[in-house]
Design a protein around this nucleic acid. Structure first.
Lengths: 367, 367
DNA sequence: CTGAAAGCGCTTACAG
DNA sequence: CTGAAAGCGCTTACAG
């Protein structure tokens, strides 16, 4: 007998946690009864149950091992949030943090734990994290449709809700009205009289460039959000009589103020200088504002600035940032709830689009 | 045969993901060989391996199921972060978010996933989340030594690192120099000439009060951080010749600006009005500043304000907040690394205390 | 280079 | 009210 190798030096020694089998032996009952003591109190007498708990306490058994239970039940009790990038970036982006807050609200409601899973991006192991996460389903956030990690998620055949990139037919998804929000932002600037625009954008493809992106590249953006926002700008700007081809669109490889600052430094050095800059996120907008400061430009006196996201810092920056509001927490909450519904056997439902809204604050004025 | 009940309608139908057994049958090898194809490529011929992958693709097998693997290996590949409160609060507190950033950095380094676990606090199930999380170890954040969830963690007999509350003998822990930081903050105010102080504090016990806390209650605070910070204030203030008993300490049940605002409204209504307020966190300080605005008080003209944490908003608030800096990200990173070391069989090591530092900005001046 | 066997820790429907 | 048995999906040391 006994072929089983290394796993743990259990028994005797008090060390290493006890198993239900050991508790059962101690009390003189079967493991089934120990299991029932924890899971179905009505299945055994109160007295026996207490004796079991007492023995468990003595042996240091803290209840069913999650791994054994999960394997048997085919449920881990956790939902995974797949984030496109390294996890540490997620905590750096206020929009992502609010989204996570929403998802965690949904997880709490359902009594589920939250598992954070980084997308590949050349991390050690690529999609390995996705393949090795013991979760019952995924909320996929901020991952472009082209990202190989998406295939990994699909392969897992777990319930999935796609956020902000509602492609895949039949998939459950939730997003926001990116195009409408972006259009409103650009219209606002046009109405103020601006005609010289520039745009600071997210990366356009998985292999990002740093620098100006021509319209062809813009249209090949593999992230739906990005495409829609650019399209919204374009519609409004062309309506104002400015050819879209005249508008420099600067691609930043990362959604950080630092990248945007560098971008803006190039954009603001151009002659004639743009009088208004549209940023695809508030994070990017903050970087542009810093660059403007460096150039001795006042906002909104010399330069108008519009962001996207309405992160809480937007209201507190100086000047307060005009931006497109989107309901981050609600988006996370709804995404989480949709996943829970799927877990409970619900059907995919219709893709849902949450509204956006332009919030005019102090960073925009007539040129 | 076949007693096993409901679990899943596998086989045929293409639906429901395949198992290694099915792949083995398809290829005509044993499950051991399928396992080897994924885990030990050197154990089988390249040709066979490819046939296995090919069959896996056809059957929709995406590699070893994490649950089965984890149970067998006795490793889940995830580290848990236990947060005292509801998870959604964690995402609301910038200090917690930075800490999580640090932990996620450590997790990434080690190729581990991050599991977020809410502490009980009357949530559905109390410590259930702790008991049911499939993790290899815990980083325990922001949980007071008295919290019952701590016992649940201990019971689990998993490697643990305690953050900010380095009690338990023999446990691995990391914290900051709370007392020194707080002392420096109060000394700074005393040197500016302040003599009428007030303090806005975290909750003192698991069953928090809202309102003034007398010294007895202060000393019974079950969170080490809180006790140490109050002690630091006390030392400096008494050194300045002000009896600690004269300093109102207002307990807020939650670490939110809203609570602090309400607290400050009471504090600022007192006669004589305090000329300086010390807050145990920046979050609380922000609330106090709002209240001051409501009273038409200028900062630092009418009221000096010192926070604690040096969250990134602190530098951007108006006026910029004088506060005690602590290295949140580094704390998380080190906590995570300590856990990883423990997981790899390292020993607990000495409790580590990271330095704090007063950062003087615009919210403090002479009375 | 490949397979048979044991077993990780648990839960469940059923028989008694 | 309690237990025997099957099995969740996997990995491992060993024999061949």
């Amino acid at each position: 007998m006994g072929v089983n190798p290394e796993p743990r030096k259990k028994k005797k020694g008090g060390e290493g946690r006890a198993t239900s089998k050991e508790v059962a032996a101690e009390v003189g009952v079967s493991v089934a009864t120990v299991s029932n003591a924890y899971n179905r109190p009505d299945q055994l007498s109160e007295g026996l149950r207490e004796r079991i708990f007492e023995a468990a306490g003595r042996l240091g058994y803290s209840g069913p091992d999650p791994l054994g239970r999960s394997l048997r039940r085919r449920r881990s009790g956790a939902i995974g949030v797949l984030y496109a990038d390294r996890l540490s970036y997620a905590f750096t982006d206020p929009a992502a943090v609010m989204f996570l807050e929403g998802v965690s609200l949904a997880a709490e409601e359902a009594g589920l734990n939250l598992f954070l899973v980084p997308g590949g991006y050349g991390l050690s192991g690529g999609s390995e994290a996705v393949l090795s996460a013991a979760v019952d389903g995924f909320v996929v956030y901020c991952v472009s449709a082209e990202d190989p990690v998406i295939s990994a998620v699909i392969e897992r055949k777990l319930p999935v809700v796609l956020v902000d990139d509602p492609s895949r037919d039949g998939a459950t998804s939730i997003g926001i009205d990116d195009e409408g929000g972006a259009r409103a932002a650009a219209e606002h600037l046009a109405e103020l009289g601006h005609r010289r625009f520039a745009v600071v954008s997210f990366k356009l493809t998985l292999e990002p460039d740093r620098g100006l992106a021509d319209p062809a590249r813009q249209e090949s953006a593999d992230n739906e959000d990005t495409r829609s926002r650019l399209k919204g700008y374009k519609t409004a700007i062309e309506k104002a009589g400015v050819p879209w081809g005249d508008v420099p669109v600067y691609e930043c490889p990362e959604n950080t103020p630092e990248e945007a600052k560098a971008a803006a430094e190039e954009l603001l050095a151009k002659e004639p200088r743009p009088t208004a800059i549209l940023a695809l996120s508030d994070q990017l907008a903050f970087g542009v504002m810093e660059a403007a400061k460096g150039f001795g430009l006042s906002i909104p006196g010399d330069l108008s600035m519009v962001g996207f996201d309405d992160v809480s810092e937007a209201a507190r920056s100086s000047p307060p940032l005009t931006t497109v509001h989107q309901p981050h927490v609600e988006k996370g909450l709804k995404a989480g709830r949709k996943l829970v519904a799927l877990l409970e056997g619900g059907d995919p439902g219709e893709p849902e689009l949450l509204p956006t809204k332009l919030v005019v604050r102090g960073s925009t004025a007539s040129p």
